[in-house]
């Protein structure tokens, strides 16, 4: 079943045409990877999925982007959209507060005040992000004291705490060591049973290892979109072949 349906999408930053006639459907409970050289529009498309681009001055979008058939840029409440579609960034960005308060921040914002309920959400979110065992005795400690890999998994737990349907990951492991990267990749594979994941990555092997579908972007155009194994074994487009084999440019 399609979670996102994008048709004839164009995005402009002022006069710059950043995404050109992009159409693709992304399936529920699958991991979709966006790949392509810097500046190709993959992060721009990712951010459009929960309207993070609304904050960019001069950003204009045409075409249609739907979440479960509902127009993202129509009458949908942006706060509801961002609750349904969470995001994890390249650089871990824990709030300067305790581990517990980082996770409880979102649920509190959405009106949950009950201590027992919050305790349960914090534990479950940390468990889902495969970091409960490491942090259960440090819940009151500052999140800023965690390692980079722990901080990133904390951010994933924070995103999960508001029970989203989709997790957007913008190069979420690019600043991490191989062990932390491995943990987050394992986590993605576990999480896709319950969530739809869309990720931007520069790591071809990572896209190969964990994504079900891959879209290749170049200069604002989606050049090729297919199941990941086909993209990396027998891409149809010469430009895709050149990029993934490192002969681009």
């Amino acid at each position: 079943m399609d979670k996102f349906t994008i048709e004839d999408m164009n995005l402009y930053y002022g006069k710059f045409h950043a995404l050109k006639n992009v159409s693709l459907n992304m399936q529920e409970n699958k991991i979709t990877a966006f790949i392509g050289p810097s500046g190709c529009g993959k992060s721009t498309l990712l951010k459009s999925l929960n309207r993070m681009n609304d904050l960019v001055e001069g950003c204009k979008i045409t075409g249609s982007l739907k979440l479960d058939g509902e127009d993202i840029y129509g009458n949908m409440d942006v706060n509801v959209l961002r609750k349904r579609v969470g995001m994890v960034f390249q650089k871990a960005n824990p709030f300067p507060m305790s581990v517990y308060d980082n996770i409880a921040f979102g649920p509190r914002t959405h009106g949950i005040k009950n201590k027992k309920q919050l305790d349960e959400i914090v534990e479950q979110s940390l468990r889902d992000a495969a970091i409960w065992d490491e942090l259960k005795d440090r819940l009151k400690k500052s999140a800023l004291g965690l390692s980079g890999g722990q901080q990133q998994r904390l951010c994933i737990a924070r995103a999960l705490a508001v029970k989203p349907e989709v997790l957007l990951m913008d190069e979420a492991t690019s600043a991490l060591d191989p062990i932390s990267t491995g943990k987050i990749e394992e986590l993605c594979l576990k999480l896709k049973k319950d969530y739809t994941i869309v990720m931007v990555t520069h790591n071809m092997q990572q896209a190969l290892r964990i994504s079900d579908y891959t879209a290749f972007f170049l200069l604002g155009e989606m050049i090729e979109y297919n199941d990941t194994d086909t993209i990396f074994s027998s891409p149809k487009e010469k430009k895709t072949e050149e990029y993934i084999t490192g002969r681009f440019g």
Binding site: M204, Q205, F232, S233, S234, T245
Partner: peptide, 9 residues
């Protein structure tokens, strides 16, 4: 080289 696509083939 961790080959992909035609190189892997």
């Amino acid at each position: 080289q961790q080959p992909v696509a035609k190189d892997l083939r």
